[in-house]
């Protein structure tokens, strides 16, 4: 169990570095989706079913769809992008270096059997979804609704032409 979780963490790290440092926006978006899929797997293994479902559906699904449609709608200029990054040759090795560090970390954690900081797995909860959300964390639901609305307004304000 811990082995799988550690390997998933390692992959998350690798794909996150890829998402941040890749030259192509499309590939970064796909790497982001992969990050969240691995996170979903970890959450499922830690018996948080609902969290896993939300995570995968929102981040891998919704966000990736929106990003990819936005990217393909904007027709970025590939040649200009390439030229800018070719100038910074001295930092060209950095992403590969970081990915190597990621694999190294996973290897060390597995072999040294380092205890990841969680005590024991909780039992899977027995509440229904509505109970968990509305009864226990009602304020959070209010908050989430407001955040969605705020996000919508923010996007409209920022990207609307004058």
């Amino acid at each position: 169990m811990e082995v799988i979780i550690t390997i998933c963490l390692g992959f998350m790290l690798v794909f996150a570095i890829v998402a941040v440092m890749n030259k192509s926006l499309l590939k970064s978006a796909i790497a982001l989706a992969l990050v969240s899929i691995f996170l979903g797997v970890i959450l499922y293994l830690l018996t948080a079913k609902w969290a896993a479902v939300f995570e995968v559906s929102v981040c891998s699904g919704l966000v990736t769809v929106i990003s990819i449609s936005a990217i393909s709608l904007t027709h970025e200029e590939k040649e200009q992008l390439q030229k800018k990054y070719m100038d910074k040759r001295r930092m060209a090795m950095l992403p590969y270096l970081l990915i190597l560090c990621g694999f190294l970390l996973v290897f060390i954690v597995l072999t040294a059997k380092i205890q990841l900081p969680y005590d024991q797995l909780a039992e899977p909860s027995t509440e229904t979804l509505s109970e968990a959300l509305w009864d226990n964390r009602q304020a959070d639901v209010w908050g989430q609704i407001i955040i969605l609305l705020t996000g919508a307004f923010a996007v409209v304000t920022l990207f609307k032409e004058a």
């Binding site: 964390r137 304020a139 959070d140 989430q144 955040i147 705020t150 996000g151 307004f153 923010a154």
Partner: peptide, 17 residues
């Protein structure tokens, strides 16, 4: 605490925009 964090995020997004 978590709800407090959530509302801090709301403030962050609105003030950013």
């Amino acid at each position: 605490l978590f709800t407090m964090y959530l509302f801090i995020e709301i403030i962050g997004i609105s003030s950013f925009v």
